[in-house]
Design a protein around this nucleic acid. Structure first.
Lengths: 199, 199, 199, 199
DNA sequence: AATGAATGAGTATTCATTCAT
DNA sequence: AATGAATGAATACTCATTCAT
């Protein structure tokens, strides 16, 4: 197979190396704090090669956004497609976000911190994805309220954004190596949200 | 008196103008996306004057952090000093954070997004302040659990960070001009957290 | 061959142009009196290109030091390797320094005036080279004294540094276009040093 | 006397403090490497006060030149006025320069390194002073040659500049705290120059 | 006599990107 | 596919000097 001849160029490997290096650097130092030069160096290539694979630094940023957003939306759609009670749907959504944050923490950090540096061209996509994420939550909450499964005295928008915040905020503190697993967190959040704190 | 002689130099006004311009720009474009040149221009002064008032761009960033952190910590201490039930204390803490986000939204955004660009010298302060904020929440939650007022089956760390996340996240979506006031949000959050979503 | 295709990039030429321009400017206006901007302009390139070839202004300064120091040390080693009387060795050393000053006057000026602006990283080299230069002289003088060829009543350190000073000082006044050639100066210095002024 | 009332302003002390701080800084970091701000801070005053005492940074530089040059010229004139043999005159000149370097080392360093940064206005003085210094030496050497006291086969210009170099160079290595005193150095130099190295 | 505010030009260096090889 | 040369604009920060107080 391929192993017989040592190849000089491995475009897919190079591309992967750029994305990995870029993701890590953007997570750590932000978009404007990360230079193309540094990304290239960390990926083991030259600046010139970077521009062979990406049209611009922004294109890489957009890709990193997409990687996470696509995963997240698909995960949430799968939840919505299952025929569950509102409570179970909420629980499943929380699990899905929390676990995504656990898996894609650098992407999520970049998603929340660097999105504003995308210009119109790339911003549209991510804004749409962001809205879909919010919409999914609103549907579950509002359906649950309408059906009487959830309380009807809470403002649905504030409720949704509060729940999203609780989950999304994980990117600020969660560590995969810590005592709590993503699934522990998901259990705590779901239970807290559904039944409340009061004894 | 002051009005009688028109003065040319107004150091306090200049300083204020720098902070205002800087806060707004850092909020909008981030630390590395904001140049000292632009801050100076927006403040109506020259770059040189900026450096007369601040030793560095970082010093301004640190000041903006402090402004918010000091306000927030004081507000939270006042809550803890009052003799309230755990439930009321939690409610009051939520109100205090949510209202601070309402008042200091740009500072809060900067606090959460740009803190990582502070170097050791300035980082210590803000890290301490951040820890104090978390500690206040933990005390309320854990006291409530110990006294039996709150459920004891939830992980207290995840619970605290979830609640903080719900409140802090507001900086991502809250607008003082929107339909919901900070106090509406505080009511919704408190009620949701204490009694849960379930009908 | 080379003439057949007109090329646009000539990295070696560019590098040479930077060194030439830098040498001349550092000689005339000193390290802190010479801007990278000016060096680039005089070399016919942009500031960006300068930094493509040199990591910093200091690196260029260090290179200019090295160029001269290496030449000088090699010239002196060759003298020491020849089997000569102390008197002839001294004469040859003086000739070697005086001629080097004649050839590398700008480098020598920079060497003596701007060395102090080198920071640790680059300073080590040049300090070592400087010490070697002094050591070569001391060896010749002290050998001559021991063997009885030279007077033994003079302090060897002061003698050496005096001789070095006489030669090195040339960078302050010598002009290759003047009446005196480097070799005239070397003859005068040697003769003066060996036999003295007295008739 | 003055001690009875504590005074607020001490213009002479302030002026002295500026000169001392400036001298030390210019010696260590050169003209372009020393900021007025730093001089003022080291002198314990503000930048504004500096400009109250000196019209410009250059004026301070010129003053430092003058301080040394005046001393040096006076010392040399005194030598020339005495009725001495050429040999004794030369010896006395060497002593006078070497001792001046011992006393005014920072001024001498500044004199030789930073003179080029003086602009026309201030340069004239120092150039004149420099020429006078050289002229004094030439007179002694040429008189000695004419009278037959000194050898007549040496080029007088190269001889003079060589001797001046030997003495002036001291600023590069002499330390008042070292083993050799200025007078030791003067003895060695005179003896070497007059009788030569040969045994 | 001295301070502190302000300026405007300048300084070394970095950076995203393009292009020749 | 990849490199290395080059650009031009930007960046944080400094500096000598002036002026109001």
């Amino acid at each position: 197979m391929n192993e017989s001849k040592p190849r000089k160029y491995h475009p897919q490997k190079t591309r992967k190396a750029i994305i990995d290096a870029g993701l890590s650097l953007l997570d750590l130092h932000g978009y404007h704090g990360t230079s193309v030069d540094k990304i290239a160096k960390d990926a083991g290539i030259t600046k010139g090669a970077f521009y062979h694979h990406f049209k611009s630094k922004e294109e890489l940023l957009a890709l990193i956004h997409q990687e996470y957003a696509e995963y997240q939306l698909k995960a949430m759609e799968e939840v919505l497609d299952r025929n569950l009670s509102s409570e179970d749907q909420l629980r499943a959504l929380v699990v899905s976000i929390v676990e995504a944050v656990g898996l894609y923490k650098p992407n999520v950090t970049v998603f929340f911190h660097e999105r504003r540096y995308l210009t119109e061209k790339y911003l549209k996509q991510t804004t749409k994805q962001r809205d879909q994420l919010e919409k999914a939550f609103r549907r579950v909450i509002e359906d649950g309220m309408r059906s009487g499964e959830f309380r009807q005295d809470l403002d649905s928008k504030a409720t949704c954004l509060g729940i999203i915040g609780m989950c999304a905020w994980m990117y600020q503190w969660f560590s995969p190596d810590g005592r709590l697993s993503a699934s522990d967190v998901a259990d705590t959040f779901s239970s807290l949200l559904i039944d409340g704190l009061v004894a």
